Lab assay of single mutants.
Amino acid sequence: KELVLALYDYQEKSPREVTMKKGDILTLLNSTNKDWWKVEVADRQGFVPAAYVKKL
């Protein structure tokens, strides 16, 4: 499975999103959308801005 690194803190703004902290390592589930990537963090799945994460 592919992992991404959170480059910035992100606070979810809708139930479809997830909160992450800078430095978090997240499991990447889907990166087909260039703006929003689906990730899993702490047993929750949701979207984060693609610009806020980097593939490892």
Rank of each mutant, 00 (worst) to 15 (best):
K1D: 08
K1Y: 14
K1H: 12
E2P: 11
E2H: 11
E2M: 10
E2F: 10
E2Q: 13
E2I: 14
L3F: 15
L3D: 04
L3Q: 11
L3H: 09
L3C: 11
L3N: 06
L3V: 08
V4F: 06
V4Q: 00
V4H: 04
L5H: 05
A6G: 03
A6K: 00
A6V: 11
L7R: 05
L7N: 03
L7A: 03
Y8G: 06
Y8W: 11
Y8F: 13
Y8M: 14
D9S: 09
D9K: 03
D9T: 06
D9R: 03
D9Y: 04
D9C: 05
D9W: 04
Y10H: 04
Y10R: 03
Y10E: 01
Y10V: 01
Y10A: 00
Q11A: 12
Q11D: 14
Q11W: 13
Q11V: 14
E12S: 14
E12D: 05
E12G: 15
E12A: 15
E12P: 14
K13H: 09
K13L: 10
K13N: 10
K13D: 07
K13P: 05
S14P: 03
S14G: 13
S14E: 09
S14Y: 07
P15W: 10
P15G: 10
P15Y: 10
R16D: 14
R16W: 15
E17V: 05
E17Y: 06
E17F: 06
V18P: 01
V18S: 02
V18G: 02
V18N: 03
T19N: 08
T19G: 10
T19P: 07
T19Y: 04
M20K: 01
K21R: 12
K21G: 06
K21V: 10
K22S: 08
G23M: 03
G23H: 05
G23E: 02
G23V: 02
D24I: 04
D24K: 03
D24M: 14
D24H: 05
I25E: 04
I25Y: 06
I25T: 06
I25S: 03
I25V: 12
I25W: 05
I25L: 09
I25P: 01
L26Q: 01
L26D: 00
L26F: 07
L26K: 00
T27A: 13
T27R: 12
T27V: 15
T27Q: 12
L28R: 00
L28C: 08
L28G: 01
L29M: 08
N30G: 08
N30I: 08
N30P: 03
N30C: 12
S31K: 07
S31Y: 08
S31F: 08
S31R: 08
S31W: 10
S31P: 06
T32D: 15
T32E: 15
T32W: 09
T32C: 12
N33H: 13
N33E: 12
N33L: 09
N33I: 06
N33Q: 10
N33V: 05
K34M: 12
K34D: 11
K34L: 11
D35C: 13
D35A: 11
D35Q: 13
W36P: 00
W36D: 01
W36K: 03
W37L: 05
W37K: 01
W37V: 07
K38W: 15
K38E: 15
V39Y: 02
V39C: 05
V39E: 00
V39F: 02
E40A: 11
E40I: 10
E40G: 10
V41L: 15
V41S: 15
V41T: 15
V41D: 12
A42H: 14
A42S: 12
D43M: 09
D43I: 07
D43E: 13
D43W: 08
R44T: 07
R44I: 07
Q45K: 11
Q45P: 06
Q45M: 11
G46K: 02
G46S: 02
G46V: 05
G46H: 02
G46W: 04
F47M: 09
F47H: 06
F47N: 04
F47L: 10
F47I: 07
F47P: 00
F47Q: 04
V48R: 00
V48S: 00
V48F: 01
V48I: 09
V48H: 01
P49S: 02
A50L: 02
A50W: 02
A50V: 06
A50S: 15
A50Q: 06
A51G: 12
A51Q: 12
A51F: 09
A51H: 13
Y52V: 06
Y52M: 12
Y52R: 06
Y52T: 07
V53H: 01
K54F: 12
K54Q: 15
K54V: 15
K54T: 14
K55F: 09
K55M: 12
K55Q: 09
K55W: 08
K55L: 14
L56S: 04
L56K: 04
L56Q: 06
L56A: 05
L56N: 04
L56T: 07
L56Y: 09
